[in-house]
Structures are given as structure tokens and as C-alpha cells.
Design a protein around this nucleic acid. Structure first.
Lengths: 139, 139
DNA sequence: GTGATTGCAAATCTTTTGCACTAAA
DNA sequence: TTTAGTGCAAAAGATTTGCAATCAC
């Protein structure tokens, strides 16, 4: 279930997205995609890069995250105001959101069944359906 | 379906929430609750107050929105980074989000059926389940 | 070379905070 | 009174932007 992607995939992914494989994008792609799926903020990823001695500016991290998202390599998840998470899992799935800690956890798509959904308003089409189960610690 | 609440309710709501019925809170409560259900941002509500000659500071609007939310009079809806919407409909329901315009639209609870949901992680309880159907205009 | 990309600092935007002032009880 | 609430301006965060320097092709 937890798929691990080969390290060398990073360059392929970036290229395949139609983006120039710059040092920064490749380094970020490795950080994002080489291990298991994850949920990161721009600030977090920037911090990781820094601690791995990879010089990247925060602005470039933001650029890369958005470019990767546009390319379908990432999915942006909004659960709290003022902070965006980027999810390396772009398959059909949903999320637990731990309100106490601010953590996200994937829920595989098949664990949620939407038995009934309304028609999209006329003139629109469904881009995606987000299900967020907000949980908190038992008091 | 679209319930209209009496104007005089505002003061009751505020008092019932355990909040002092100050001029500002009452005015905001009227703007929020006297008509049909709505989705507003702090900035919007502040603008409305201003155009109705109701002097309220933006900080107070934020305070009131959060106090009302804590009291169960409002529900905060997060659909895009950096902006919070406050929904006067606190019944069980979900949302369409129009990605092009940034508008929200309620979906009555019964129009979505969650046939299967995973158990909350041990040690946690479900606070609420948000379903957001993101739609965009047909290209 | 040339156009895409980057870094930096400044700017923007939303939201929060500190604190003196005001008002409700 | 006395305590909660308010306004203001500053601060805090997250994200974006402008532009010169740099890199990929």
C-alpha cells in the first residue's frame, strides 16, 4: 500500500512534467518523492532542503510546489486557514485531519464510499471531491 | 428550505451564546443571521458593516466571528489557502466550491450519503466530516 | 546566446496581538 | 466599580512579486 518510489524517478518526474530539470527542482523532487507518501508545507520542505545542505530559496520552493501541483505530481490540501499542505499521494483518496496536532493522514479511496452525490450545478463539472474527517483526541 | 430568521433573534443568539450583547456584536449578528444563510469572510462582513454606517473595527469582526463559531452559531469553512469563510448554516451539510469564482454553495446533508467511513484512529473521535465538491465551469 | 529559472528583498494579504480606552453589568 | 469588550496600530505568518543574476538547452 505504501509505495516507495525509486530515487532515480525524480528526474523523470520533473522532465515528464515539462519542467527543466534544474538542480533545485530535482533536489526538491527527491525530497518529496523518494520515500513514502507525505504531506508537507512549503516551509517544512524548505527546512528539509536547508538541513540537507541544498541551497534553495523559499520562493523557489513555492514555485516548485505549485508547478508540481499543476503537473499532477502533487495535490494541494487545504484544511486550515493560512497554511497549505502538499500531498505526494495523487491517487483518489481522502484525509483524516488531527485538529490538535495539525497532522494529516491519508485514507485510501476505497475506505470511503460516497453512495450519493448531488449533480454539479449546471454549467459546471466536478473537479474533485474532498472528504476531510476532522478528529480530535479523546478528552 | 431557506429559513429566514426573525430580526429580533440577533440579541437572543448573542446572549444565549454567553456573550455580552454589545452594539458591535448585535450589529454583526443582525448582518449575519437576519436573512437567509450565507458564507462570509471577515473582510466582507467588515465591509458590509461599514457600508451600513456601523462602526466596527476589523479586529472586532474577527473576534466576533470566532466567538460565534465557538458558540456554535457559525461554522468555519476552509476551502482555499489564506481565506476563511464563515457559514451561518450550522446544520449537517456540505459544500460545492466554485473554483473559478471562489463562491461556496450549501449542499443539504441528505444529498450526500457516506455509505462507508473508516474508524477514527484510536484515541480520537470524529469532530466532523467535511465534504467539499470542487467544481469549475465547463470549458 | 536566449529564454527559463532562481534568489533576494520588498510587497501583499489575512489574521493575531498588545494595550490603553470604553462600555456593560 | 470591575471586568469584558473594543479600536488601533503594530506584528506575525504565509505567500507572491519584481527584477537582476544565473542556468539549461
Amino acid at each position: 500500500m505504501t509505495q516507495t518510489r525509486p530515487y532515480s524517478d525524480a528526474i523523470e518526474r520533473v522532465k515528464h512534467a515539462g519542467l527543466r530539470p534544474t538542480r533545485q527542482r530535482l533536489a526538491l523532487a527527491r525530497l518529496l518523492f523518494q520515500g513514502r507518501d507525505r504531506h508537507v508545507t512549503a516551509e517544512q520542505l524548505h527546512g528539509e532542503a536547508k538541513s540537507e545542505e541544498i541551497p534553495v530559496s523559499l520562493a523557489t520552493v513555492y514555485n516548485a510546489l505549485h508547478q508540481f501541483t499543476r503537473a499532477g505530481l502533487l495535490r494541494e490540501v487545504v484544511v486550515e486557514p493560512g497554511r497549505s499542505y502538499f500531498d505526494t499521494n495523487v491517487d483518489d483518496h481522502h484525509h483524516f485531519y488531527f485538529e490538535d496536532s495539525g497532522q494529516l493522514q491519508d485514507i485510501p479511496g476505497e475506505e470511503v464510499r460516497l453512495a450519493r452525490l448531488p449533480e454539479p450545478p449546471s454549467g459546471t463539472r466536478v473537479d474533485r471531491v474532498d472528504v476531510i474527517i476532522r478528529v480530535r483526541e479523546n478528552g
